[in-house]
Simulated assay, not measured.
Amino acid sequence: MTPQIYLFILLSISSCFGCFFCQSVLPKIEEDIEKLKADFNSSQSDVAEGGSIFTERLKSWTEATEKKIILSQIISMYLKMFDNIGPATDKLHVKNIHNALHTLSNSLTESFKKVKDLMELAKLPMNDKKIQRKAVNELFPTLQKLLLDHPTTHIKRKRSQNQKRKCKC
């Protein structure tokens, strides 16, 4: 990945937490990332093959709360990467990046819980009869919550048209 991609991810993260992170840590992190890139020979041509890993996924997450969810998952992936890179973790710049990611991860714990919820939902055995009975039992409250929290414009339009008709009487 290019330095711009790393900066984009870190700036996206820092935008969720205000400018403090950006002003105090980001310049040092940028230097440390440059050193890390040198450690990994990330300027080789094969790095560009297949496109980006994280930044493309960030584009479709537009709201701040949504971004926190995806960023919490991305940060956890980076932390897993740092746990698996071996002897490079002894280097100061790697420790600095790891600490910054860990700090950000701690501030994203609520969003990470939401990711875990999504992952658990994806694992539900929907062919299990007991799960199906429970799901059917929860269907109306789920739909009700969805429709009340996010009314469609079509429903709004009908409601406003009915009010206009009532007013003309």
Rank of each mutant, 00 (worst) to 15 (best):
S72Y: 00
T152N: 11
D128G: 05
L146F: 10
M126L: 12
K28C: 05
H93R: 06
F54H: 08
K91T: 03
T109F: 05
L79E: 02
Q132T: 08
D32W: 00
L26E: 05
D117K: 05
S111L: 00
P125T: 10
T103W: 06
K67E: 03
V115H: 09
P27H: 05
H154P: 00
L121P: 00
K168G: 02
Q163E: 15
L139E: 11
L147T: 13
I33G: 01
K164A: 11
L11M: 03
K95S: 04
E56F: 01
D46R: 03
K129C: 01
I75V: 15
L58H: 07
S60P: 02
I74L: 03
L148Q: 13
P151C: 14
I85C: 02
E49C: 07
S24N: 09
L92V: 06
R165L: 15
K67F: 00
L139D: 06
Q132F: 11
Q23D: 02
R157Y: 10
W61V: 07
R165Q: 12
P151I: 14
Y78K: 06
M1N: 06
K134P: 00
P3S: 05
N127I: 04
E49H: 09
Q161C: 10
D128N: 15
L108Y: 05
E34T: 08
S105H: 14
F8Y: 01
D128T: 04
C19G: 01
P141K: 12
P27D: 09
P141G: 14
F140W: 12
L143D: 08
M119E: 14
K164F: 06
K113N: 15
D83M: 04
D90I: 03
F140I: 11
L36D: 03
L121E: 10
I5A: 13
I85V: 08
I13F: 02
K166R: 15
I13C: 05
D46C: 10
K123V: 09
V94N: 08
T89L: 07
K67T: 02
F8V: 03
S12A: 07
Y78Q: 06
H150F: 14
T152P: 06
L124W: 00
K130S: 12
P3I: 10
C167K: 15
K123P: 00
M119R: 04
N106V: 08
I9F: 02
L108C: 13
K91G: 02
F40H: 04
A100E: 06
Q4V: 07
L124K: 13
R157M: 12
K114N: 13
C22T: 10
K129Y: 04
L108N: 10
K67L: 07
H102L: 09
S111E: 09
T153R: 15
N162V: 08
S42V: 00
E49S: 12
L101F: 14
S107L: 12
I53H: 06
T65Q: 12
S76Y: 03
S45M: 01
M119Y: 00
K168T: 13
D90W: 03
Q163C: 03
F54N: 06
K28L: 11
K116W: 07
A122K: 01
N41Y: 04
H154R: 15
S43N: 02
L7T: 07
K166V: 02
N41L: 03
E120S: 11
V136H: 11
E31W: 00
S14A: 13
S45G: 09
K91C: 04
